[in-house]
Design a protein around this nucleic acid. Structure first.
Lengths: 133, 133
DNA sequence: CTTGACTCTGGACTGTGGTACGGACTTTAA
DNA sequence: TTAAAGTCCGTACCACAGTCCAGAGTCAAG
């Protein structure tokens, strides 16, 4: 498929695909004699993954690291495993943080029921007072 | 406390505090006759919250909305509740996405044990193939 | 009362993640 | 076979989130 097909399938702009290529997030694809890029179906998965990860709050550098977690020649399984484990830790940290935030927001909606008034800034109350150094 | 004290306490730069003020993320503080900004201890909580939320992947615009979820004069409890509920949905979406990603990474570390080789890109295998439209 | 650390404003600069543009070339569908 | 749509490259531009001056004024310790 051409770059336009890929862009449509992955729901990004053509320019974005070329941008990701420049940034090393997707492989340089083979070209037609005309110079047109030709992509396989996998490229769609890859770009969709980037899109998805972005929505979850990862920056391109992190996404690149996630995509690099594969068994490429020259990389040992052990090395990959270690990197994957550190990513899992990072993700756990985020999940916990989001869960705290959710609890605080739930407390806020609860406080909004039945009573007419809540504290000045319940989110700060719920989250910040108990932050560990 | 002065802006420097605040910045140290919240672990950001002085310029960043002024930047957040310009962006409306923190209130304009009272000033000394000299023009120096004077902050209360709450300001530290607020800036630390911003820092924390940023690490979790929120952008400043979203953080501003989160910080706005308070009972200010002129805002009804009902309105706040609705906004908080939509934020909770958003957070749930992120948590689920991160959990999927974690499962995929765990599959990767598992695959790395005992066997010398895994598929070409396990993360994509685990995440992308089952994406709903 | 001076010296050094701090703060003020305004504007310039940086890096990230794209988006748009222009002019040339290629493909496809009528 | 030609017109429309697509692609190429390079460059310029944009918003976001800071970061870093310069030059002037302020504060606090010695």
């Amino acid at each position: 498929m051409t770059i336009g097909d890929l862009a449509r399938a992955a729901e990004v702009g053509v320019e974005t695909v070329r941008f990701y290529e420049r940034q090393g997030l997707i492989e340089k694809p083979p070209r037609l004699e005309s110079g047109y890029r030709i992509y396989s179906a996998e490229a769609v998965d890859r770009v969709r993954f980037i899109r998805r990860a972005k929505k979850l709050g990862f920056v391109l550098k992190e996404i690149k690291e996630l995509l690099a977690l594969r068994l490429a020649p020259g990389t040992t399984c052990d090395r990959i495993k270690k990197r994957a484990e550190s990513k899992i830790e990072d993700i756990d940290f985020r999940i916990r943080g989001l869960q705290d935030m959710k609890v605080a927001l739930e407390a806020l909606t609860d406080a909004c029921v039945g009573r007419g008034s809540v504290g000045d800034c319940p989110i700060l109350d719920a989250l910040e007072k108990r932050e560990s150094p």
